[in-house]
Design a protein around this nucleic acid. Structure first.
Length: 709
DNA sequence: TATTGTGTTATTTTT
DNA sequence: TAACACAATA
């Protein structure tokens, strides 16, 4: 496996630019990898090469990604060629957590601190706002928490917040809450996602000796998706880079689409300034799309000013032109897409799983779902509710959390009355208050309160039962396998029973989810490792097993590719999104344009962009204007089709032709007649269609004589 | 404590 | 429009 021949074979598969990037020696290196140019291949080949040629040992390499999926894929590809024991290849957060656990004592955290998710974060902040008597109407939890998170993205601790950061009243409130929030987290022995990096940065800046250890260890640093790094991640990377500056960043400024989440496109644009004498390699040969698609994307993105620039090309030929289709309204748009898909499936026997509908925002999926159901087209909406985000899974996780960490009041709050134990909000409030004033962990507080007889008899009994169960389960974790212990929790708590007795439609699904959850536990040696997995990994698989049309947001499609891509809703306000432009001006518009670029470059063979002249938004019909992005596509690579003439003046009976219960035609359909050629349906009465033929004008024809296509 | 009513608010969400 | 959160109600 580790034969030199394999490696050279591997290298021979690379193009010149890729080879240059893989073999480049020491010093800072920026690989500008356009969409579909093989960046993962280059990154992994570079790692393989570093190890194989004995430049460094695997454990002297630090490789960082954003997603677990990317990390997993890269590990897989590397280990296919070479044993890479000790290689650190993982997400920013996972590596930061690993480092922080090693030095947790410096921050008076235990080495198995909890990593809390967004929901707990919200709950904590909500509680704090209530405690501080802050009016939630004017300062909603969402706003305050997002301000704090943004500060963390900027690597600002509470005492780093200066007056210039306090732009609104809400920022002042957020500053106060920030301090209290951090205090609460400490008390819970917990950190949030942002903290993972913040603590790392503090660790490195305040402890030069510790930083030196890491400098000594990591000879080469590689970073994936550099365009999406935020300031904290940037600082973290700069701190970890030693004086040799062997840092290799791969990215594409044109695909930076997470600015609203704190990603700083400036990081990649500034690379040469940050690292003088940096080498820049551009990967411009695209292996994914045909040239019509590629040129459309290139032309569009050339309207952005904040970029380093590159020219994508492919030698796979021009392919089909990009189709721009205008429909009368949003219903017709969904109709058109559904018909187009049926047609594709029948005519070119395309598998549905190779088709994707990429929308700007989640609410757009609904139209398509409805139409697909009525047409009987199998589909799946990718990236909806994640497995670990399901109510029943979170409940069980809360049971586990309070069991292994008796101070985790957030977890207890969640499940103390699920299933019903008669312990309502007022009881809970008295417990948390008692815990706070006596500086006790939540479970300890309950025990003391039971001993002091501070509960009503019924409640006392329930709490006694519950607390003794927690201790029993804790013991079970040390004695039994993870799955068996959790099984015990699920049964003894009455949680599973609760869903079994539930008569609602979802309960069956929930029970199945619980079973799936239990079986997932099998692969973990201990509960701590499992909890780390849960807090840092979001399973979001696009499995190609099911043959279904994929519907998802453009964000969710990043990194994926499909033979056929349909991009609906290219209208001003929707795409580009109005709010983004209003709030961020040119900056917002450029990010929208990058989003359009990402969307277009997902397509391998066929790309259809649609827009509707009227759209039903929140129950109101609104006229819409074609997206400016459509005007930015080069005329020679596109073909326009206009079905937008009939704007909804037809009654239902006039818009559809139904024969023997089968739906046949719709006003606006393109049809073909043997003698008169192509045209579209103007009006329908029963089985008689009025058709406007392209070359023969309008005629009345019985539906049996024409075909829809 | 469960149910009904009212009001509010509708981007994107890698960890 | 519709979904969701939260408050008032029996």
């Amino acid at each position: 496996m580790t034969d030199l021949n394999i490696l050279s074979l591997h290298l021979n598969q690379l193009n010149e630019a890729q080879k240059e990037a893989v073999l480049y020696g020491t010093g800072p290196l920026l690989i500008l990898a356009g969409a579909g140019t093989g960046k993962t291949k280059v990154l992994t080949s570079r790692i393989i090469n570093l190890i194989h040629t004995n430049i460094v040992l695997p454990h002297q390499i630090l490789a960082v990604t954003f997603t677990n999926k990317a990390a997993k894929e890269m590990v897989h590809r590397v280990s296919e060629f070479i044993p890479a024991e000790g290689l650190w290849l993982n997400t920013f957060h996972s590596i930061a957590a690993k480092i922080l656990r090693r030095h947790a004592d410096i921050f008076t955290l235990s080495s198995n601190f909890t990593i809390i998710g967004v929901d707990d974060q919200m709950r904590l902040i909500k509680n704090l706002l209530k405690e501080k008597d802050i009016d939630e109407e004017s300062y909603p939890t969402k706003i305050i928490s997002s301000i704090i998170q943004r500060w963390k993205d900027l690597a600002l601790s509470e005492d780093d917040i200066s007056n210039t950061d306090l732009k609104t009243e809400a920022h002042y409130i957020a500053k106060d809450i920030y301090g209290l929030y951090q205090f609460k987290l400490k008390a819970l022995d917990a950190v949030d996602f942002g903290d993972l990096l913040l603590y790392n940065i503090k660790l490195f800046t305040k402890n030069p000796n510790i930083l030196a250890e890491y400098h000594n260890r990591f000879k080469y640093i590689l970073v994936d998706e550099y365009q999406d790094t935020n300031i904290a991640q940037y600082m973290w990377l700069r701190l970890l880079t030693n004086s040799d500056k062997n840092i290799c960043c791969v990215g594409d400024e044109d695909q930076s689409i997470y600015g609203w989440r704190g990603a700083e496109i400036g990081n990649i644009l500034r690379f040469e300034k940050d690292f003088p004498n940096a080498k820049i390699v551009r990967l411009e040969q695209n292996y994914r799309s045909t040239n019509n698609i590629l040129f459309a994307a290139s032309n569009l993105i050339s309207n952005n000013n904040h970029r380093l620039g590159k020219n994508l090309w492919a030698d796979s030929g021009n392919g089909e032109k990009v189709k721009i289709v205008t429909l009368a309204d949003s219903n017709e748009e969904a109709n058109f897409v559904a018909k187009e898909i049926s047609k594709l499936e029948i005519d070119s026997s395309t598998s549905l799983k190779n088709i994707a509908i990429l929308v700007r925002a989640g609410f757009q999926t609904r139209n398509f779902e409805e139409k697909f159901i009525s047409y009987g087209i199998p589909y799946k909406v990718v990236g909806g509710l994640k497995f670990y985000d399901r109510q029943e899974i979170k409940d069980i996780l809360a049971y586990i959390r309070i069991t292994i960490n008796p101070g985790d009041s957030l977890a207890l709050e969640r499940i103390i009355n699920i299933p019903k134990r008669g312990i309502g909000p007022s009881n809970l409030a008295s417990i948390t208050e008692y815990a706070a004033t006596n500086r006790l962990g939540i479970l300890a507080a309950i025990s003391v309160m039971i001993a002091k007889n501070l509960f009503k008899p019924k409640i006392k009994v329930e709490l006694e039962k519950l607390t003794s169960l927690f201790y029993e389960w804790k013991e079970a974790f040390s004695r039994l396998e993870v799955k068996a212990a959790v099984q015990q929790i699920v049964e003894q708590s009455g949680y599973l029973e609760m869903w079994k007795n539930d008569t609602s439609i979802e309960s069956q699904g929930r029970i199945e989810n619980i079973r799936e959850f239990l079986s997932a536990l099998k692969s973990f040696p201990n509960i701590n490792e499992f909890m780390e997995h849960v807090s840092l990994v979001t399973d979001n698989d696009v499995s190609d097993n099911d043959n279904m049309v994929n519907i998802m947001t453009i964000h969710a499609a990043k990194g994926l590719e499909f033979d056929i891509v349909i991009l609906p809703g290219w209208e001003e306000g929707i795409f580009p999104n109005q709010r983004n432009i209003d709030e961020l001006g040119t900056k917002g518009l450029e990010e929208e344009r990058r989003l359009a670029y990402v969307a277009i470059t997902r397509a391998k063979k066929k790309l259809i962009i649609t827009n509707a002249m009227r759209r039903n938004i929140f129950g109101k019909w609104q006229n819409s204007i074609t997206s400016r992005f459509i005007d930015e596509l080069p005329a020679e690579n596109i073909v326009n089709v206009n079905y937008g003439f009939y704007s909804g003046h037809n009654t239902v009976s006039q818009t559809k032709s139904i024969n023997n219960g089968f739906y046949l035609f719709c006003v606006g359909d393109r049809v073909k007649h043997e003698k008169f050629g192509e045209g579209y349906v103007l009006r329908i009465s029963d089985n008689q269609l009025e058709i406007s033929f392209d070359n023969y004008g309008s005629k009345k024809i019985l539906d049996q004589f024409v075909k829809r296509f």
